[in-house]
Lab assay of single mutants.
Amino acid sequence: LTVHVGNVTYHFDNPEQAEEWAKRMAKKYQGQIHVKDGQFRIE
């Protein structure tokens, strides 16, 4: 699973971990989480 934050990409084996990280990053950067094809993108 991949989480994109700006132009930085993080890889996770565990979906719960990826989702948790995406939520934390979205809160930190006050962005929206977009989920597409098993990838999380924070914008």
Rank of each mutant, 00 (worst) to 15 (best):
V3E: 00
A26G: 03
K27S: 09
K36R: 09
V3G: 01
H4L: 14
Q32Y: 09
P15V: 12
G31S: 08
Q30I: 05
N14M: 06
K27L: 13
V5N: 01
F40K: 04
Q39P: 03
G6E: 04
D37H: 02
G38D: 06
M25E: 01
E19V: 12
P15N: 07
T2N: 05
R24N: 04
K28A: 06
D37V: 02
K36L: 12
Q30F: 08
E20L: 12
I33G: 02
V8A: 10
K27N: 07
Q30L: 07
D37W: 02
M25I: 08
N7E: 07
E20S: 11
A18Q: 04
D13I: 08
Y29K: 02
P15M: 12
E19W: 15
T9N: 03
Q32S: 11
G31M: 14
A22Y: 04
H34V: 15
E16G: 08
W21K: 00
Q30G: 15
F12K: 00
K28V: 08
K27V: 10
F12E: 00
K23Q: 09
H11D: 03
P15S: 12
G6I: 05
A26F: 06
W21R: 00
H11T: 11
Q39L: 03
A18F: 08
V35S: 05
L1K: 09
G31Q: 06
L1M: 13
Y10E: 00
H11W: 12
G6L: 08
V5A: 06
K23L: 11
H11Q: 08
N7L: 09
V8R: 14
D37G: 05
Q17G: 05
G31V: 13
R24L: 14
N14P: 00
Q17P: 01
H11E: 06
E20N: 10
N14F: 08
V3M: 02
V8S: 07
H34Y: 13
V8Q: 10
G31Y: 07
N14W: 06
K36I: 15
V35L: 11
T2G: 03
Y10Q: 01
E16I: 11
K36T: 12
Q32L: 08
T9A: 10
G31P: 01
A22M: 07
K28L: 13
K36Q: 13
E43I: 14
F12C: 08
V35N: 05
F12N: 00
I42Q: 03
G31N: 04
N7W: 11
H4I: 14
Q32H: 13
A18L: 06
E16A: 11
H4G: 03
N7V: 07
D37E: 06
V3Q: 01
Q30M: 10
K23H: 10
K36E: 13
E16Y: 11
A18Y: 05
L1C: 15
V35Y: 15
K36V: 15
T2V: 10
R24P: 00
H4Q: 12
R24K: 11
K23E: 05
A22G: 02
A26T: 02
Q32D: 06
V3S: 01
H11G: 02
I33P: 03
I42P: 05
E43M: 09
F12H: 00
E43T: 11
G6H: 12
G38R: 03
H11L: 09
K27E: 11
I42Y: 05
E43Y: 12
E43L: 13
A22W: 06
Q39S: 10
V8D: 05
T2Q: 09
K27I: 13
V35W: 13
V8L: 11
A18R: 03
D13P: 08
V5Q: 01
D37K: 03
W21F: 15
L1D: 03
G38A: 02
R24I: 13
K23F: 11
Q32G: 04
K36H: 13
Y10F: 09
M25L: 09
R24H: 08
Q39I: 09
G6C: 15
V35M: 11
Q32M: 08
V3L: 04
E20F: 10
Y29I: 06
A22R: 04
I33L: 11
Q30P: 05
I33V: 10
L1G: 13
F40Y: 13
V8M: 12
I33A: 04
H34P: 03
I33S: 03
Y29S: 02
P15C: 14
E19P: 02
W21H: 02
N7H: 12
G38L: 05
Q32C: 14
M25A: 03
Q30A: 11
V5G: 01
I42W: 06
E20M: 12
H11V: 11
A26D: 01
F40M: 12
Q32W: 05
V35P: 01
V3W: 02
D37C: 15
K36Y: 12
A22N: 01
I42H: 05
W21L: 02
G6Q: 05
K27D: 08
V5M: 08
A18V: 04
K23M: 11
G38S: 03
Q30N: 14
H4W: 13
M25D: 00
E20P: 00
T2E: 08
A26Y: 05
Q17V: 10
N14Y: 08
K36A: 09
N7S: 12
E20R: 13
H11K: 10
Y10I: 04
T9M: 10
K28D: 03
Q30V: 06
P15I: 13
G6M: 09
K36C: 15
N7I: 08
R24T: 08
G6P: 01
I33Y: 05
Q39T: 06
A22C: 04
E43Q: 06
Y29G: 02
E16C: 15
Y10M: 03
K36S: 12
Y10G: 00
H34E: 09
H4P: 00
I42G: 05
A22Q: 01
T2A: 09
H11F: 13
T9D: 04
A26C: 15
I42K: 03
N14I: 08
V5T: 01
G6T: 02
G31L: 15
D37F: 03
E16F: 11
V35I: 13
T9E: 06
A26Q: 04
G31E: 04
F40A: 04
I33W: 07
Q32V: 14
V5C: 15
A22E: 00
Q30T: 05
Q17F: 07
